[in-house]
Amino acid sequence: MAYDIQVGGYQLGMLDKVEIHSSVELLADTAKITLPAAEYNKALDVEEAIHRGDEVTIRLGYEETGLVTEFRGYLQRIDTDNGDLTLTCEDDLFLFRKPLKDAVLSKVTLSSLLSRIIREIGLSVKVSCTYSWTYSKFVIKSATAFDVLKKVQEECGADIYLKDGVLHLHAPGEHIGKERLYDFRYNIEAADLTYRKAEDKKYLITVRALLPDGKVREFEVGTPGGDKITIKCPSSDEVSMRLRAETELRRRTFDGYDGSIDTWLIPECQAGDSVELHDPDYPHKEGNYFVRSVTTEFSEEGGKRKVQLGFRLS
Rank of each mutant, 00 (worst) to 15 (best):
M1R: 08
M1E: 06
M1I: 05
D4K: 15
L12E: 09
K17Q: 11
V24K: 00
A28Y: 00
T30Q: 12
A31D: 05
I33W: 08
P36R: 12
A38C: 13
E39P: 07
H51T: 12
D54N: 15
E55N: 10
V56F: 13
T57I: 15
L60V: 06
G61M: 04
T65L: 11
T69L: 10
G73D: 02
G83W: 11
E90C: 12
D92N: 14
K101H: 10
V104I: 10
S112N: 15
L114V: 09
S115E: 14
I117T: 01
I117K: 00
G122N: 13
F138D: 00
K141C: 06
A143C: 08
V148Q: 03
V152W: 01
V152K: 00
G157T: 00
D159F: 05
L162E: 04
L167F: 03
E174H: 03
E174T: 04
R180L: 06
L181P: 02
N187H: 06
E189H: 09
E189A: 12
T194L: 05
T194F: 03
Y195F: 15
Y195Q: 02
R196K: 11
K197I: 02
K202A: 07
L204E: 11
T206Q: 09
V207C: 06
R208H: 01
L210W: 04
L211Q: 13
G214F: 01
P224R: 06
P224Q: 04
V239S: 03
M241Y: 01
R242E: 14
A245T: 09
T247H: 02
R250D: 07
T253E: 07
G256Q: 07
Y257L: 07
Y257E: 07
W264R: 13
W264L: 14
L265F: 10
Q270D: 11
A271P: 07
D273C: 08
V275F: 02
P280C: 08
D281Q: 12
G287T: 12
Y289C: 05
Y289A: 01
R292P: 05
K304Y: 10
S314C: 05
